[in-house]
Design a protein around this nucleic acid. Structure first.
Lengths: 250, 250
DNA sequence: ATCATAGTCGTCTGCCTGACGATAAACACT
DNA sequence: AGTGTTTATCGTCAGGCAGACGACTATGAT
């Protein structure tokens, strides 16, 4: 049936792993699930799973994301989709070191998901439990044995965090961390959490409100952050920021 | 031997495909090989092949690149490696639509290679022949039936070209298209070919010579372009350009 | 000698950013 | 009611960088 000689190429298992990021309490957090089986039993790992036979890679990633978090992924081809009800999802990179899984040859297509703050993590699939934790928890674990992520997931997470950090510079992706309606201050706190820096509120306000297509005022105001009521905005249609938002040195 | 139930996941074939770009005669060119077998027999396709059992993805890509072009890939971890004798190689994206290969389920990890102008294409492996052609030849084929690339390779090429176009904005990657020693004018013609625009020679000269670590003068001069002799440079250690080189609008 | 070609140095203007002062509008106290 | 705190928003100013473009230099070709 297949014109290929099955012995002409080695069979691989293909999985998708997810770097799911959100901003909670002023810090950039990643979703991790506890492994229920060997290897790395009991260790934290990125959510993920096998790609099914009839499934595209993006479809598999969206399915895993929905299973783990209940989030509906935005199709990148649907730019006008409102943030808040769903998450941004994009392919990150593919990891295929022959020894990355001790059991067999597994190639993992990692994806990056950015989501607004969610009420509570929800364990799903074969994971015993799931949690959000600041990315430093996994990238600089105090106890290497128990704190570090399984497999090469620390590297994948680091790559995902770096992608997110650089991509909010030149795109409007930071709005993916915000609910549908948000204030300039909330958006600024997203940048501050992702970059781990403090930004000048006045210059930030000037920059984001002065960039055409970035923010669309909804007319409403809110005072949920305390202080003077702030204007509410939705994400505008623009996806690329030109000139970019500058990340402070050091 | 494997703790996995082989029926628990579908087997995939994993390949690497290469987008190899160079600048020839003022235009951005890609390497294509003619397919010797069905499907798409006789059509042009990107070079590539199966990942071997004990091979990392980057290793497989470097091996295919060497087989097709004789180029030695720079390890990204070796920043000081001189351009000219080798090529820049990086992972691009992974393509896994269930129907992308009519024969079976194939997931392809595409890589992007940037090389200086090479003497002549060299057919290798199972390809009947190989050639360099301007990327527009494949992206906007006059005759869809014969000019278009096989499989989803037109999409992969488009993604690779877009990656190259955006990456030379904020990195010193354009030097990967140049021989070891080059002039400011030659580097400018690389930008002009990749972006398809004309740049002001005076402003370009000011920008690249004023960016610390971008260019290192070798002391020599050349007149191979005609006109007044130009200073020769090597690529400096800097990889990231800050502020970036600005791509003109429209 | 003159021209064409390419490289290199300057100047000027406008835009953007970083630093930071000032004002406005809410809430929490007393 | 007044005072302090917090957050939002508007303005000002100086420095840096990019685009536009003039001027000069050093080769080879005619």
């Amino acid at each position: 049936m297949s014109p290929y000689d099955p012995s002409a190429f080695p069979p691989f298992a293909v999985t998708v792993d997810l770097v799911v990021l959100t901003v909670r309490r002023h810090s950039l957090c990643a979703l991790a699930v506890r492994r229920g089986e060997a290897p790395f039993q009991g260790r934290w790992a990125l959510p993920g799973g096998f790609v099914r036979d009839d499934e595209d890679l993006a479809t598999a990633a969206a399915r895993e994301l929905e299973e783990e978090t209940g989030l509906c992924a935005h199709d990148p081809g649907t730019p006008a989709a409102a943030p808040g009800n769903g998450a941004h999802l994009e392919q990150l990179a593919t990891y295929g070191d022959p020894k990355r899984d001790p059991r067999m040859r597994v190639v993992s297509v990692a994806h990056l998901a950015l989501a607004p703050d969610l009420p509570a993590p929800k364990a799903g699939g074969d994971a015993h439990s799931a949690r959000w934790a600041p990315v430093e928890t996994f990238l600089e674990p105090e106890d290497e044995e128990t704190g570090a992520l399984a497999f090469d997931h620390a590297q994948i997470l680091a790559d995902g965090v770096e992608r997110a950090r650089s991509k909010i510079e030149y795109s409007s992706l930071a709005t993916a961390f915000c609910p549908t309606e948000f204030t300039v201050g909330e958006l600024r706190r997203v940048y501050e959490a992702v970059w781990g820096v403090a930004l000048d509120p006045r210059n930030f306000h000037r920059k984001v409100t002065g960039t055409p297509g970035f923010l669309v005022p909804t007319g409403g105001t809110t005072t949920r952050q305390g202080g003077r009521p702030a204007q509410l905005f939705r994400a505008g249609g623009a996806t690329l920021l030109n000139p970019p938002m500058l990340r402070p040195e050091v």
